[in-house]
Amino acid sequence: MTAVQKSPAETATDAAVEFRGVSRVFGETRALDGLDLALRRGELLALLGPSGCGKTTALRLLAGFDRPTSGEIRIDGRDVTGVPASKRDTGMVFQAYSLFPTMTAAENVAFGLRMRKVGGAERGRRAAELLELVGLGDRGGSYPHELSGGQQQRVALARALAVRPSVLLLDEPLSALDARVRVQLRDEIRRLQLAEGITTLFVTHDQSEALAVADRVAVLNAGRMEQVDVPQEVYARPATPFVAEFVGVMNTVPVSGGRITPGAAETTQVRPEALLVGAPDGLAGTVLTSTFLGPVTRLVIRTEVGELTADAVTRPGLPAIGEHTTVQISG
């Protein structure tokens, strides 16, 4: 399989952000290797990949915290490769909140406006407006230590939006939160991004997070772009073996006539939900693990073609660990 993506030239007419052949080398390490990527105006693009793939490097280069070894970065058609961070009109939300501990929530939100010499009345109005927007209208006088982690991250988001940046940068903004708050804030970020119509680059290593929130997903591997597409296409039609293995779970099985057939020369890749557990004419196996996931139960089944991962609708009578069952491609 080969990577599928549009070049910057193909998307330049509606591009708010462009990476043109961007590389960044640290000693012997090539963190980015000729990155070509365009963000469309008003979209949320998730930059996804494992640790060390170059996604945070790309974010830092776009923010102006670092400069590329080669290549060009453009915002709204303007070359900003050598422009300092303070002149780039971007807003940043960090993983660790980075709020000023001696400032109230409202003062934190208004900080960027104060740096831009915006008058006190306008700063107060904008801060109140943003805090209301993120559901913290009554916590403007609270200090960071008086807020929960989720509330602090909402303040950080409001602070980034307060200056009305042309591009919003999110650096793993949810990874420090517990699972329930993470989902809530993920949905909140998406709602606010749509309401503000702001072009957003969302860096994450969490596949489910990227697939749930993004207009498009860009998958990085070792500094190179593997695929850029809408979440449904990245999941259902991975462009490279790496994307297939990294995004979700994938089984590689020998097939003949569309069925799992031991010894068959042809192989195909099948997602867990496309495998039928307990098929009357399926491949025999033994359940190694069973994980309850609510609507579905994930089973790992040892077969003669290897261990297969299958998602079965949760119901009474599913095979337990150690029990024999069968598995086959559904349909």
Rank of each mutant, 00 (worst) to 15 (best):
A210D: 02
G112C: 09
G294L: 12
L37E: 01
R78K: 13
V230C: 11
M103W: 09
A222R: 12
R302V: 14
L276P: 15
E10C: 09
L276C: 14
R182T: 00
A179K: 10
G91Y: 03
E323V: 13
L37T: 01
R315Y: 05
A310Y: 01
V300P: 12
L168K: 00
N108I: 00
Q151R: 13
H145K: 13
R30F: 06
G306V: 09
D178S: 08
A264S: 01
A110G: 11
V181S: 14
G258P: 03
T325W: 13
A85L: 09
V300D: 13
S208Q: 15
L185H: 00
E323A: 15
A128T: 12
A46D: 08
F26W: 06
V134R: 01
Q328M: 07
V163F: 06
L157N: 02
L220H: 00
A284H: 13
V313I: 13
V167W: 07
T240M: 13
T325M: 11
Y235S: 07
L35D: 00
A46F: 09
A320S: 14
G54D: 01
R41W: 11
V25N: 10
E196C: 13
Y143R: 12
G197W: 04
S290N: 11
Y235T: 06
N251W: 03
R116Q: 10
R40A: 12
L133F: 13
A222N: 08
T13A: 11
S290R: 15
A9I: 10
R20T: 04
D171W: 05
G248A: 01
A3I: 11
L37C: 08
E10M: 08
P254S: 02
R114K: 15
G278L: 05
R67H: 09
M250I: 15
L169Q: 01
A12V: 14
R116E: 05
E146Q: 15
T303I: 10
V167K: 07
R259I: 10
E107F: 13
K87E: 15
A12R: 15
Q152L: 10
T286D: 10
R74S: 10
H145D: 08
T267N: 04
A195I: 12
F94E: 00
P165N: 13
A179L: 11
A127N: 02
R259E: 07
H205M: 05
G54E: 00
A236D: 14
M225F: 07
E129S: 05
G112P: 07
T261Y: 06
A96N: 15
T297E: 12
R271G: 08
R164Y: 08
G119T: 11
R154P: 02
G150Q: 01
P241Q: 07
R259V: 06
L37R: 06
P241Y: 04
T69M: 04
S70K: 11
L44I: 07
G223K: 03
E43A: 06
Q184R: 14
R302K: 15
V203D: 05
A15E: 01
V118T: 03
L169R: 02
P254G: 02
A218R: 02
F100G: 10
S330A: 14
V93H: 07
D215M: 05
L220V: 01
S70V: 09
V109G: 03
D138S: 14
V22G: 01
T297M: 09
L59F: 02
V305S: 00
G49K: 04
T29N: 08
L170F: 06
G248T: 04
E122Q: 05
A320F: 09
T291A: 12
L136M: 03
A58S: 08
